[in-house]
Amino acid sequence: MITFIQGVLLTLLAAITIAIVRQRNLFGVVILAGIYSFLIASVMMVLDAVDVAMTEASVGAGISTVVLLAALHLTGSREYPPAHAALLPLFVSAVTAGALIWGTAELPKFGVSHAPIHQNTAPKYIEDAAQHKMPPNMVTGVLADYRGYDTLGETTVIFTGGIGVMLIMRGRRRKSKGSDAKSKSRERSA
């Protein structure tokens, strides 16, 4: 049953991708890209990766749609046909896709327990978590303690990104509205 659902969803994904490439109206492209995100999120869900699916749905279908629509206001919604045939990009894409598919042939089968990723450190984490006085939740122990530096790095990246977005938004508003609107917004916040 799961294989059947997966097959239907992946077929729809391929159809949507071809439609995105052939579509000349950029507004339609944004809508189709949102549909693509919802479908790929469903595929992730069927594969049991609910957290990845959640991220894909919020970033791909939610925020990307909003940001792309805001960009459409600046660019206009018509894409002009290319002046020449895109043979070289097609060739590069085909070669890259071939290399990637060739690379997956060596990978272990999906979900098998004797894959290399389950052999090295994971059993050690599970055995030693109690001895090392880790937090009672093993996942928390791995994320916050065994891989503490990794998590710290990720958090720093997200923090920096957030600060960057806040700085850009603040500077933009001050320039476009002027001092009158600024005092008005100050009243509203007070």
């Binding site: 239907v8 969803l9 729809l12 159809a15 949507i16 439609a19 109206n25 507004f27 339609g28 809508i31 189709l32 949102g34 549909i35 919802f38 479908l39 279908a61």
Partner: peptide, 26 residues
Amino acid sequence: ALVLAVSRAILGPSVFDRVLAGNSVG
């Protein structure tokens, strides 16, 4: 239903069809 909605989104013909189809896919 998903197949029907996606085919409507691909076939169009107007943008409003696509918006409605996108909403149904969600």
